[in-house]
């Protein structure tokens, strides 16, 4: 069971992520969008969306630091375990609470504003379930861990090592099997969410428009006669049969 959950599932999830992203880029660029609902409702979105997105940026950054940087490195530069956790929990709490408050506002808005509710995609229901689940479980696990309810579990000696071992294709799944339940569930929800990215609106995260900073303002393009005359039918523009 541990092998299946912590040795196989992560790879399945990442395979689905990569395959789905490839499929989206190859066959469904037209569907690749944020699906913004700001034209329907702007007031709540202007509070909720930046809170959630900026919060999430820092949450992701925190996860990268916690999972990728080995404890021995921070020890080597003289950061004690206590200082590390104090820093991690304090900054993580701010980012996590901001993101949670943001998603709270956004989900409330999605249910409460009729036009936004109507604009909800089928994939949204699944995606929101796992996104909210992963966030709530992550916050719960952190809360339990810092109040000592999990017996002073140090994820940097367990989960982080397992996570890094995924990259060497020698997953140390026993380490995850020994982790507290809240962490286990958080990771399960997290990997499911990864698999959902390309099949839901979350795919917009891969098109973060950083290139805007470097391109000339006005874009010119030549019209390619092949584009209209001989190209294959695009989705939504198929021939009438």
């Amino acid at each position: 069971m541990d092998l299946l959950l912590w040795g196989v599932l992560p790879y399945v999830s990442i395979a689905l992520l990569i395959a789905g992203t490839f499929w989206r880029a190859r066959y469904d660029r037209f569907g690749w969008t944020t699906h913004s609902s700001q034209v329907h409702e702007s007031r709540l979105l202007r509070i909720g969306s930046p809170l959630f997105h900026f919060g999430m940026l820092f949450v992701v950054l925190g996860h990268v630091v916690g999972l990728v940087i080995p404890q021995s490195w921070t020890d080597a530069v003289g950061v004690s375990d206590h200082t590390y956790h104090l820093l991690a929990v304090s900054t993580g709490a701010v980012a996590g609470v901001a993101a949670a408050a943001g998603i709270g506002i956004l989900v409330f808005r999605r249910f409460k504003v009729p036009a936004v509710r109507r604009a909800t995609l089928r994939s949204d229901h699944l995606m929101y379930t796992f996104l909210l689940g992963a966030m709530v479980l992550g916050l719960t696990a952190t809360m339990l861990n810092s109040t000592g309810a999990t017996g002073d579990y140090n994820y940097r000696e367990g989960i982080s090592i397992w996570f890094r071992s995924l990259f060497t294709f020698q997953p140390d799944y026993h380490l995850m099997g020994a982790a507290p339940l809240a962490f286990q569930l958080h990771i399960l929800f997290g990997f499911t969410l990864f698999a959902l990215i390309p099949y839901s609106r979350l795919v917009h995260m891969f098109s973060a428009p950083v290139q805007y900073l470097f391109r000339p303002y006005v874009v010119y393009r030549r019209r390619d006669p092949k584009l209209t005359a001989n190209r294959e039918d695009r989705r939504g523009w198929e021939r009438v049969r």
């Binding site: 428009p209 290139q211 010119y220 019209r223």
Partner: peptide, 23 residues
């Protein structure tokens, strides 16, 4: 996204529906 462009030949301004990301 750089999805909008001005056509060189006739100056028509268009949105590339495949590259627009809804920002």
């Amino acid at each position: 996204s750089g999805a909008m462009y001005k056509r060189e030949e006739d100056g028509v301004v268009l949105v590339d529906q495949d590259r627009c990301r809804g920002w």
